[in-house]
């Protein structure tokens, strides 16, 4: 007995989710960040962010289809982290790494925070 492991599968699935997001297909939540709106799939947000996990695991938020984040959250930082969730690539420009790190702290994405911190120290 054994199995055939398709080594590209995780990446192929995530790429399809990102195609669905860019075409707004099966997206089930709109995130408002300081006036900007982002469509996404709750399942991806919950899988990647401790903050969204705690929001959407709460039964009273089960049917939430729109959520506004704290105004202190930087929309550019959020956009970078949302792209990271759907691509595994974290866009790190010197000018935005601090905003990205602070947003990752807010979204409870500890591993990204650590990576941003190491990048800043280097």
């Amino acid at each position: 007995d054994g199995c055939i492991q398709f080594t590209r599968h995780a990446g192929d699935v995530l790429l399809n989710f990102n195609r669905l997001r860019s075409r707004n297909i099966l997206t089930d939540v709109a995130i408002q960040v300081d006036g900007q709106h982002f469509h996404a799939h709750k399942a991806i947000l919950v899988a990647c962010s401790g903050f969204f996990y705690s929001v959407f695991m709460d039964p009273k938020n089960a049917n939430l289809s729109a959520i506004s984040l704290d105004p202190k959250v930087d929309p550019k930082g959020f956009s970078i982290l949302l792209d990271f969730m759907y691509t595994s690539c974290l866009d790190l420009k010197d000018s935005l790494v601090l905003a990205t790190m602070n947003t990752a702290i807010y979204l409870q994405m500890e591993h990204v925070v650590d990576t941003c911190h190491r990048f800043i120290k280097s």
């Binding site: 007995d1 054994g2 199995c3 055939i4 492991q5 398709f6 590209r8 599968h9 399809n16 195609r19």
Partner: peptide, 21 residues
């Protein structure tokens, strides 16, 4: 799946959703 009888398939595993229809 790092079992003893694992064959690794490097090719695409599923269909690709197009950027637009």
């Amino acid at each position: 799946y790092e079992g003893v009888n694992t064959i690794k398939e490097m090719g695409r595993s599923i269909h690709e959703i197009p950027r637009q229809d």
